[in-house]
Simulated assay, not measured.
Amino acid sequence: MIGLEKSVTGAQKSAILMMALGEDNCARLFEQMHEEEIREISAAMSQLGMVSAETVESVCHEFSRSLGSSEVLIGDIETTERLLKNTLPAGRAAAIMEEIRGPAGRTMWDKLGNVSEAVLANYLKNEYPQTVAVILSRIKAAHSAKVLALLPEEFSLDVMTRMLKMENVQKGVLHSVEQTLRSEFVSNLPRGSHRDSHEVLADIFNNFDRRLEARFMTALDERSHDDAERIKGLMFTFEELAQVPVEGLMVLLNQIARESLPIALKGASEKLRSAFLAAMSERAGRILIDEVEALGPVRVKDVDAAQSDILLVAKVLLDRGEIELLDQEQAANEMLV
């Protein structure tokens, strides 16, 4: 709860006052503001949480208002979105809310992901490793993996080491990165939530091909064995799909490109092949086995690409809760049933 004992910023005071005035008055005030002001106040409003009655009264008195309050206010995403929709054109309100929400919407980092990895790597190679670490920790892991693969190996390792040690980025540093990226790539840098650095790098390693994964993991292990082991434990590998229940694999099979599966299974264990066959009809299973055997020698690069495509779909389904990943003991018991 925001109380009198806590320092309240100017943007927070404005947000508190506008919420105290009610939605209609708030809408009229928004109409008189520039978009940058609306963005700043909206961002503050969405993060207020619960505000004590004493603080509301203090803020109102500070604005020379004879206004008291016996109730608390709660500033959250839903309230902010409702106020903006009642005030601004739909498109403008949606754009501001997308920025406030951060990486879930069409944000700076989504747009940065559309920049060619070669162009981005060429730009980043001249930046400080810490700056690169900030940027790569916020864009999609698949894109980060491609960028790191194009950077000098020693530089990439330095960046990954800094990502592991990185905590919440100081406002001044983030502002500097924001200004540079806005002028050279896209605009509207959001202040996204901070992810665990080991999880970020685990996602990136998942998107390396096997050669790069092995090389970087070995080098990282030499620098910090504990960090390397933790990243390994967080990585989601193709073989772990054997721990998805039959029902989940059936869902996955309906979502993936059919032509990817035989190639992906060419480099898989018998355990994983059996898991997929158990999720298919007998006829479909026979066809799959024939397709795998008919492939002949397949390049490791092609197997990696097919497995990566399937893993990306599986991760989306896992995030949505449409499939689950059992531990090894649970998966083994299910296969016995």
Rank of each mutant, 00 (worst) to 15 (best):
Cys60His: 04
Thr55Arg: 15
Ile38Arg: 06
Glu98Asn: 15
Ala133His: 04
Glu81Thr: 06
Ser58Pro: 00
Gly49Cys: 02
Leu29Tyr: 12
Leu67Glu: 10
Thr131Arg: 12
Asp110Gln: 06
Gly68Ile: 12
Cys60Tyr: 02
Ser58Asp: 03
Lys85Arg: 15
Glu99Cys: 00
Glu35Trp: 11
Phe63Gln: 09
Ile96Trp: 12
Ser52Ile: 09
Ala142Ile: 01
Val119His: 15
Ile74Glu: 08
Ile38His: 05
His143Thr: 01
Gln32His: 11
Phe63Lys: 11
Ile100Trp: 06
Arg92Phe: 04
Pro129Asp: 06
Gly68Val: 14
Val115Pro: 10
Met108Val: 12
Trp109Phe: 15
Phe63Pro: 09
Gln130Ala: 10
Ser116Met: 03
Ser66Gly: 11
Tyr123Ala: 11
Val134Met: 13
Ser137Met: 09
Val132Asn: 08
Ile77Ser: 01
Ile139Asp: 02
Glu57Cys: 13
Met33Val: 04
Ala53Asn: 10
Leu136His: 12
Ser116Lys: 05
Arg106Tyr: 15
Arg65Tyr: 11
Ser70Arg: 08
Lys125Tyr: 08
Ala95Arg: 15
Ile139His: 02
Arg82Leu: 09
Glu117Gln: 05
Ala95Trp: 04
Pro103Cys: 01
His34Met: 06
Ile77Val: 07
Ser66Asn: 14
Ala118Phe: 13
Met50Thr: 13
Ile41Gln: 00
Leu120Gln: 05
Ile139Thr: 06
Arg92Asn: 04
Ile100Pro: 01
Thr131Cys: 08
His143Ile: 02
Arg28Asp: 08
Ile100Lys: 04
Gly68Lys: 14
Arg106Ser: 08
Gln47Val: 00
Val59Ile: 14
Ser64Thr: 11
Leu73Cys: 02
His143Val: 01
Thr79Asp: 04
Ile139Phe: 05
Ser46Trp: 00
Arg39Ile: 13
Ser69Gly: 11
Leu73Met: 06
Asn122Phe: 03
Thr55Phe: 05
Gly68Cys: 03
Gly75Ser: 03
Met108Asp: 05
Ala145Cys: 05
Ala141Ile: 03
Ala118Asn: 11
Ile139Glu: 04
Thr87His: 09
Gly75Tyr: 03
Ile41Gly: 02
Ile74Arg: 07
Gln47Cys: 09
Tyr128Pro: 06
Ala121Arg: 02
